[in-house]
Simulated scan of single mutants.
Amino acid sequence: MAAGKRRLFHAFRISRKLALLSGGFLLVLGASGTAALMFAPARLIPGYAQNQSGYCKTIYQSGFKRGEEKRLIALIATSDTDPAARVRTGVRVARHLASTLKPDLVIVQVADTHGPTTRAELRGAAIGAEIVHAPNPAKTLAVSKPWEARYANTLPTRAGYYFGPRIDMRLTELEAINLDLKQIEMSIPDDEHVQACAGDVVDEEPELVVSAEVTESAGGH
């Protein structure tokens, strides 16, 4: 079991040319008043300060509705400094959430383990990558493709901020990452339940709890 998890968490490597930044989705949620964002200080989260490559920790996750759509947003902190590794970690987490919680749309935002942890600060330059995944694009009005991703093409500062050009990834690049991850997951026995991030509590029967509907003023993702 341990060997399978190590393969899953450490086999994620692609070109250094990739990197990404999000578009402030958490701010939209806060403005809509439809989700209560609770952020624990990073130093109080067990294992959060770990610095090994590939490590990540879920620091916020919430489901909500937009019309008839079930959407899910998660914010994770990772030790990955390489932009490509951040994207790959975000895609892996999005795949996991889509397969276990069955939302129509998944948004994963990636921050740095040394970055800010308060609601007001976790946006803009504090987000190094954003991945949007629609398992079935026909079921959501937010996107027309199964994958979208943006990243900041830079390494994080010592304070966990990303100051660099913003890059939109091509669908073909994201599909290649998705296929690679799918092949890795297929090599892990079915009875080995792997959580989205190392250190997260494994829920054997996960359930998507959806909050009140997002208002029209909140717009799409």
Results as ranks from 00 to 15, higher is better:
residue 127 I to W: 02
residue 22 S to I: 04
residue 167 I to H: 11
residue 68 E to G: 05
residue 103 P to R: 14
residue 208 L to M: 03
residue 99 S to C: 13
residue 64 F to M: 07
residue 198 A to P: 01
residue 210 V to A: 09
residue 119 R to T: 15
residue 47 G to S: 01
residue 200 D to W: 03
residue 40 A to C: 10
residue 173 E to V: 13
residue 145 K to A: 14
residue 38 M to H: 06
residue 83 P to F: 01
residue 46 P to A: 06
residue 204 E to C: 06
residue 116 P to C: 05
residue 76 I to D: 00
residue 172 T to I: 08
residue 158 R to W: 09
residue 153 N to A: 10
residue 159 A to P: 02
residue 140 T to P: 10
residue 9 F to N: 04
residue 88 R to P: 07
residue 129 A to G: 03
residue 167 I to A: 04
residue 198 A to Q: 13
residue 28 V to L: 05
residue 171 L to R: 13
residue 104 D to S: 10
residue 204 E to K: 09
residue 51 N to G: 14
residue 8 L to H: 06
residue 118 T to E: 08
residue 86 R to A: 11
residue 191 D to R: 00
residue 211 S to E: 10
residue 31 A to G: 06
residue 169 M to H: 12
residue 114 H to F: 03
residue 148 E to D: 06
residue 41 P to F: 09
residue 125 A to L: 06
residue 175 E to S: 15
residue 202 V to Q: 15
residue 183 Q to W: 11
residue 107 I to P: 03
residue 70 K to L: 02
residue 38 M to Q: 04
residue 32 S to T: 12
residue 1 M to D: 14
residue 216 E to T: 13
residue 182 K to M: 03
residue 103 P to S: 07
residue 10 H to P: 05
residue 198 A to Y: 04
residue 75 L to T: 09
residue 216 E to R: 04
residue 108 V to W: 02
residue 39 F to L: 14
residue 41 P to Q: 02
residue 91 V to P: 02
residue 50 Q to A: 09
residue 206 P to Q: 08
residue 41 P to D: 12
residue 175 E to N: 13
residue 152 A to D: 01
residue 58 T to M: 07
residue 186 M to L: 11
residue 93 V to R: 00
residue 219 G to F: 10
residue 66 R to W: 08
residue 89 T to L: 12
residue 1 M to N: 11
residue 109 Q to P: 05
residue 124 G to K: 01
residue 6 R to S: 14
residue 105 L to N: 12
residue 101 L to D: 12
residue 148 E to H: 15
residue 80 D to K: 11
residue 147 W to Y: 12
residue 103 P to Q: 08
residue 85 A to S: 15
residue 48 Y to E: 12
residue 188 I to V: 10
residue 70 K to I: 04
residue 185 E to C: 02
residue 56 C to Q: 08
residue 211 S to H: 03
residue 50 Q to G: 07
residue 78 T to Y: 00
residue 137 P to Q: 14
residue 121 E to N: 02
residue 66 R to D: 05
residue 121 E to H: 07
residue 20 L to K: 05
residue 115 G to M: 07
residue 104 D to Q: 02
residue 53 S to H: 10
residue 189 P to G: 15
residue 122 L to D: 00
residue 98 A to Q: 01
residue 70 K to M: 13
residue 193 H to E: 14
residue 62 S to A: 10
residue 89 T to Q: 14
residue 174 L to W: 04
residue 160 G to Y: 00
residue 165 P to S: 02
residue 213 E to K: 02
residue 152 A to K: 01
residue 44 L to M: 14
residue 183 Q to H: 11
residue 59 I to R: 05
residue 218 A to H: 03
residue 142 A to L: 13
residue 95 R to A: 06
residue 50 Q to F: 05
residue 103 P to F: 03
residue 11 A to T: 15
residue 71 R to P: 02
residue 129 A to H: 03
residue 63 G to L: 08
